[in-house]
Design a protein around this nucleic acid. Sequence first.
DNA 1: AGTATCTCGTACATCAATGTTCGACTTGCG
DNA 2: CGCAAGTCGAACATTGATGTACGAGATACT
Lengths: 203, 203
Amino acid sequence: MVNISWEVPAVTTLKRADARKNIESIMDAATACLARDPDVSVADIAKAAGVGRVTLYGHFESRATLVTKVVERAIQQSDEALGAVDLDGDPRAALSRLLEASWRLTQQYGALIVAAEQSMPHEQFQAVHIGLIDRWKPLMERGRGDGSFRDDQPLEWQLTLLQSVLHAASGAVYRGEIKAAEAAALIDGTLQAALTPPGATRG
Amino acid sequence: MVNISWEVPAVTTLKRADARKNIESIMDAATACLARDPDVSVADIAKAAGVGRVTLYGHFESRATLVTKVVERAIQQSDEALGAVDLDGDPRAALSRLLEASWRLTQQYGALIVAAEQSMPHEQFQAVHIGLIDRWKPLMERGRGDGSFRDDQPLEWQLTLLQSVLHAASGAVYRGEIKAAEAAALIDGTLQAALTPPGATRG
DNA sequence: AGTATCTCGTACATCAATGTTCGACTTGCG
DNA sequence: CGCAAGTCGAACATTGATGTACGAGATACT
């Protein structure tokens, strides 16, 4: 005799506690590994997470989906961090604040953006990337409008420049050319100078 | 009976004409391909050169040696181009000249530097890279000394910045954000601003 | 305590790229 | 002309990474 009213596993997609912990470990390890080397292997990520490679595949169906999850989390966290920055008041001061927050994120996530570009569908990546850039655009436009920033160069170029300098600083710290502690000041000092309108005097 | 005085192939390590032409084609194609994608496959390079993959391996014993040869040629040519730049006179004007020459090289060789970093023995790459950087150092030091450039930031950082902005411009052109024609002016305008000493007024 | 869930290692299938071998064919060059 | 040199494609071996299958053993949860 078979029991007709068999058990449905409740609403629970709830994993067991150790499984959840492992998923966390994997996400964290993947973030750290991908931030350093966007081409890091799944085996290395598993090792860094202190977990078997098979276990990893039990939770993420492929390398690509793992990368996507990691990127999505990073994006969400970045978006929150940038969203918390006060962009009002003097554009130059606001830029400093935004740069400081962005620098922390760059250090944390480093080359993750490269991994994303390689592993995610192009459209999805574009959407995500544009979302982040848009945090900068309004401030830059305002600063260009009121003479705080030079507007004799395309806005697109200036946005690229911001990205580029942050990335360069990350590389320089990694190579030991500069110390992490002084990086923030260098970034701010450099970009404030680069964005100063021609003919103006800088503090 | 065997002829005792057999033929030695003269001094000639001289390849046949078509072989030399193919080697040229391969080097050129490899340069172009690697400049776009440092991970491009040997098969793609051969195809771009209009040559069979086997033929390529007949002339270069491995992908690594091919990359090395290509990089060496690029370095040599870059070194000549930069060596021809007049670095005397006003440091800011000299910087403009050096930037223009460097921008041409960056466009030509693009991501080749990345391929080099991945395929060449670390020491060799370092040597080559430092050789190029040293083209910049004396000018920067002179400019910092006479007040043309700011010296409140590490020289290393400023050199990294130069590289970074050139690279960023290359990427921006590739993505269509800016036109190649205007890139040179943007690079110069940006870096001159970034290197202007605090408190000075820029033209 | 009992059981479904989870972990782990090993082993295997697959895939893409590198590098090699072979034999037939073409071509530069003496 | 004639041959050494060069080219070509197809087939093969190898390597490294991804992803799967299995089964024994550990552990969270009820």
